[in-house]
Design a protein around this nucleic acid. Structure first.
Lengths: 160, 160
DNA sequence: TAAAATGATTCATCTATTGAATCATTCTGT
DNA sequence: ACAGAATGATTCAATAGATGAATCATTTTA
């Protein structure tokens, strides 16, 4: 007898949508990593640039929260970006414990290219679907994300 | 002017379906990892049990290919499973270089529980969707997987 | 003003993974 | 049949990545 779990699909075979989602998510992440590598960025670099670009002046503590990382993790991350002249750490004048993070001009330029690359990546990934199917997929995934409390804006690192 | 990449959605905002897919894939993988941990298994353990269960007698070399791992990686993996009495390595009589991998009785029993757990996981993940939406999502993801040459049967490890 | 809390940093540790080198066995070509 | 190449499994050292505890400066609380 069949014990517990979800009902199998109408065709009798158990569904493996969760597995497919993992696989495709992993595929999407690694393809994106290839793209960012061509810009000299790791996915973490890319997520960091995006967050700072969208929220100039945020602190490392807040950035760590947003990235789902531990504060000690963002230190070498920002060190690297700062060395490359993409990010600036400026001491907050109101609370000299924390930094206010900003993109340099080069950082903003690179973020622009990063956005283009992200759109290309999206196009490539969804190429097997018709535009209508892509829309439907976007809708379903958004619903899933909402249902599970996934922050759609959070560029949490998804591994490689 | 807008340079390159995919057209934004009809609503003007750029689509971020690829990101959502990464995030949800990561969510699915880590939730599944929680479930398998309750069975005392890592996701790699689980994938290994599944492969051996489906293809009894396969060699470590082939298993490594299927898992997308390097041969030296599967050695400690199998050591662990063998120590726990879930898997057996028996020397092939036709080619004494390689082992034929089999599940023990305990391994088969655990694989059964693993399948139940996977179905529960699936149900939990798709809970925010109606059955019709789940079907549609399964269809779209399968199409995507096919379009990108993702082996639907390959339990390639998707990180944590 | 003393003590607790906070942001950033350092550092030692841990885990996972990888590639090269090794060993036994089998295959290939002569 | 034999020498050498190839193959499966294993060991081991090196690498990379992330993590948590301890530290320092600064700010907040009482």
């Amino acid at each position: 007898m069949y014990s517990g779990g979800m009902a199998p699909s109408p065709h009798g075979r158990p569904r493996r949508t969760a597995f497919l989602l993992s696989q495709l998510g992993s595929l999407s992440a690694s393809r994106f990593a290839e793209r960012t590598r061509e810009l000299g960025l790791t996915p973490s670099d890319a997520g960091t640039l995006r967050w700072i670009g969208r929220n100039p002046g945020l602190s490392q503590r807040v950035l760590a929260d947003r990235l789902g990382a531990v504060p000690s993790r963002v230190v070498p991350l920002l060190d690297s970006l700062e060395t490359r002249g993409l990010v600036e750490r400026v001491r907050s004048s109101t609370d000299r414990r924390n930094y206010e993070l900003h993109l340099t001009g080069a950082g903003q330029a690179l973020l622009g290219r990063l956005r283009d690359v992200a759109q290309e990546h999206e196009g490539e990934l969804l190429a097997p679907l018709t535009p209508e199917e892509s829309d439907e997929l976007a809708r379903l995934l958004a619903r899933l994300a909402e249902g599970h409390g996934v922050d759609v804006e959070a560029h949490r690192d998804t591994g490689r």
